[in-house]
């Protein structure tokens, strides 16, 4: 295996209840890369993100996923997070009475503990937080409030990116991060993601629309349809999809 390979998915199949959703996904993501997963509604995009983060409603019925030399499917959701997988949720939940700051401190220190690092003291934590806040243009007043409670759609998504900045994951999965965002919020969120990109981490952007990819420019674009990657290419593929619509892919698949 290539030493730069971060994530390697082979013939991944998954179902929910009796319904088969993923029908054999193959995907390789290297450090430093951004992959976009596109596809029409119901193609399995969000399922792929959920399976990678370890949601229990989905049953993996076949295939393997290797993450930095570890069998990802064997790991609990929290251990996946501790190994460096971060999921930016499409619908971030609200947790009343728990501030984002308190939440992040708990998460960060549990992750550090897993990695054999010392817990951050209050001062260093605050310092880190200030730095990341600036990076993703988020206001402290928002972070003092109960997690996502009463947040607007844009605030919730920005909070997701802030958490990503705090936890510095190796692999970030952005699940429909653009949904429900106006153009300004979209730009701020995308800027945050871009600032966090470096040669040692990777990003999977799951999206329905090409719009987000104007801001987060992918190295590769994959089209998911009926639980399979039916077409892969570079960012031009996204533009082509935008122009021709998903029907084009559907007809192509049917012909093939």
């Amino acid at each position: 295996m290539n030493y730069r390979t971060m994530l390697s998915i082979k013939n991944l199949q998954a179902k929910i209840g009796e319904k088969q959703i993923l029908n054999g996904i193959d995907l390789k993501v290297n450090a430093g890369e951004v992959h976009a997963i596109m596809g029409p509604n119901g193609s399995g995009k969000s399922t792929l993100a959920s399976v990678l983060s370890g949601r229990e409603e989905y049953e993996v019925s076949g295939g393997e996923v290797d993450f930095l030399g570890k069998d990802l499917l064997e790991l609990s959701p929290e251990d996946r997070a501790r190994e460096g997988i971060f999921m930016a949720f499409q619908y971030p939940v609200e947790i009343p009475g728990v501030s984002t700051i308190n939440f992040m401190k708990t998460a960060l220190n549990q992750i550090r503990e897993y990695r054999g690092q010392q817990a951050l003291d209050a001062v260093s934590f605050l310092q880190l937080m200030k730095e990341k806040m600036k990076l993703v243009e988020i206001d402290q007043s928002l972070l003092n409030r109960s997690l996502n409670e009463g947040f607007s759609g844009g605030e919730k998504k920005r909070n997701e990116i802030f958490q990503m900045a705090m936890l510095e994951p190796k692999l970030a999965i952005l699940d429909e991060t653009d949904s429900g965002l106006d153009i300004d919020a979209l730009r701020i969120v995308a800027n945050g993601v871009n600032k966090l990109r470096n040669k040692n981490n990777a990003t999977i952007v799951v999206t329905h629309y090409q719009r987000l990819l104007d801001y987060i420019v992918p190295d590769y674009v994959h089209v998911l349809y009926k639980g399979k990657i039916v077409k892969s290419g570079t960012k031009e593929l996204a533009l082509e999809l935008e122009a021709k619509g998903y029907d084009w892919i559907k007809s192509e698949v049917t012909v093939a």
């Binding site: 983060s53 370890g54 959701p77 501790r82 947790i95 939440f103 998460a107 549990q110 936890l167």
Partner: peptide
């Protein structure tokens, strides 16, 4: 699940 995904174990998530 949201807490788990951020690396927090279940007992701590419940406490939180």
């Amino acid at each position: 699940f949201y807490c788990l995904q951020r690396g927090i174990d279940e007992e701590s998530a419940v406490a939180l």
